[in-house]
């Protein structure tokens, strides 16, 4: 049935469904549950509004999202998670898992963008360049700024650290004293873990509060590499 709705282009994707269901969803019908904002006049009637999937992936590279909106969303994420765990370790593990899901997508997006923007896209096969690209590229893609430092553990050869002096996701979070061990940057640790895994450097990544007088919310992302990665690095030397 070629039924088109002249006034509500956003609903026009429903035009092939039966008229009764369109009526049901239409705000012009008696139902008052839906209050769609009126559509600007510039939109062509009948044309569906482009969704996030229609946008060019390269054009969204420099676009920004509201930090406030993200803060509220992340706050809800932490509250939701906190209600369903038994302790701080469990909470951090779950935040890590949530971040992991972001990280796999960030890596894929970055690789796709690198391929389309350069003639000879490069894949990092050595650990240190890969770590550098996480420190700058991943941080820029996710937080809009590079991380502040990379450090190598003196005691353990398999441990590396990425340091952020003021993690944007924790900017409005005050952890109560009785949970002072908790670092909400476990979410970021999950992102890093996913990117490391995706690049072929399996590692265990955790987040730790390392405040200084100047940077009270300074956070260290600790990367503990698997032995296989170290062995391979040894061979590539």
């Amino acid at each position: 049935m070629a039924y088109t709705q002249p006034h509500h282009p956003r609903l026009s994707v429903l035009s092939t469904t039966s008229q009764s269901s369109v009526d049901h969803l239409s705000p012009t019908a008696s139902s008052t549950r839906f209050s769609l904002p009126s559509v600007p006049a510039s939109n062509k009637p009948g044309a569906p509004r482009p969704s996030i999937y229609d946008r060019n992936l390269n054009k969204t590279r420099v676009s920004e999202v509201s930090a406030s909106a993200f803060s509220f969303l992340f706050s809800e994420v932490v509250q939701y998670t906190q209600k369903r765990v038994s302790g701080i370790n469990d909470l951090e593990r779950r935040l890590n898992t949530l971040g992991y899901r972001i990280g796999t997508r960030v890596l894929e997006l970055m690789v796709w963008r690198a391929e389309s923007s350069s003639k000879a896209p490069k894949r990092e096969i050595r650990f240190l360049p890969a770590l550098m690209s996480i420190h700058t590229q991943v941080w820029k893609a996710v937080f809009g700024k590079p991380a502040d430092a990379i450090e190598k553990s003196v005691e353990n050869a398999d441990e590396y650290m990425i340091i952020d002096n003021d993690p944007p996701i924790e900017r409005h979070i005050s952890v109560p004293r009785d949970m002072s061990q908790l670092s909400c940057s476990s979410f970021t640790a999950g992102i890093v873990e996913a990117v490391m895994d995706g690049l072929g450097f399996p590692a265990r990544v955790t987040a730790h509060n390392t405040p200084t007088a100047q940077f009270p919310s300074r956070t260290t992302i600790l990367i503990k590499l698997e032995q296989s990665v170290l062995d391979r690095e040894e061979l590539l030397k």
Binding site: S68, S71, F72, F74, S75, E76, V77, V78, Q79, Q82, H172, I173, S174, V175, P176, M179, C184
Partner: peptide, 9 residues
């Protein structure tokens, strides 16, 4: 709004 409402705790 910043420090209290955006704080999950």
């Amino acid at each position: 709004a910043d420090a209290v409402m955006k704080n999950p705790f």
